[in-house]
Amino acid sequence: MRGWLSPIAIITAATAAYFGGPFLRFAAVYILGWSLAVFGAWLLLRYGLVNFGIGASYALGAYAAGLMYRYLHTADLAVHLLAAVGAAGAWGALNGAVGIKTRGIYYSLLSLSLSMVLYGVLVKFYTVTGGSDGLYMPDPRLLGVRIGTAGLLALAALLAAAWAALGEVFGRSYAGHVAAGIKINELRTSALGADVGRHILISSVLASIAAGLGGLIVGYSTSHVSPDFAYWVTSGKMVVGGLIASFLPWTWGFVASAALYQAVELYSLQFAYPELVVGGLLLAILAAWRLYYRR
């Protein structure tokens, strides 16, 4: 039962952040949104799949809403959510369907390439997508009312809590056990009756939707989406977040890992050599994990 505390912990942390002032509110929305993309990377890592293109889903979620606003002049949250889920879900199905053919680093590079093609399209077709400047993201409205910062924080917290609950269910489920089987020995799992392609396809769609919703939230929080959302370095950071999450024993690990990564990145910016700080801290995390594991 302890696992079910995860969604509650997320909501509690978000509520605390709300009373912590405007910066904490902004940071909480950003981190919760980004954590959904980390969830996507984490879910695929459960199958042993390192997706270096998860940023494409993240970008699509935000662009779906940005394009809705630009061309249909709608800032309606429900429409945006549907568009984000639809676009990211379709992308996940595409990535899953082609990804099934490849494994290991081939899968990683295939997903990276797919995301970079999207990146190229977003930059290139600037008359439609706004090019490298990106698009403006409106304040979303629910039933015609602006949801504001509080509403956005609540939305982010609810979404993160919902995905944490899904993660909890997944961990105990038949599907979660098949994922573990595929990660360790795919052939054997298939010989036991699992349709590996189907499992990977469904999880790709779920992972992509999570990342898409994350992109939507982050886009709202900064009022802006750019092709950088789809750049492979963005995906790389999410994979690192997912890896940290997979070291953590809790279902809300993806939020903790996202908070940690973003905090470290923010903290590092005050130094002349931020990469050194982030790299060094990642190293420290890995070393600590290895020490813990040896015991």
Partner: peptide
Amino acid sequence: LTVRQNAAIAVSALRGFSLRPV
């Protein structure tokens, strides 16, 4: 993995993508 976890994977492999607990 443990013996139990191995068996849990075998049981799960027959269920398709199901989110019900093992």
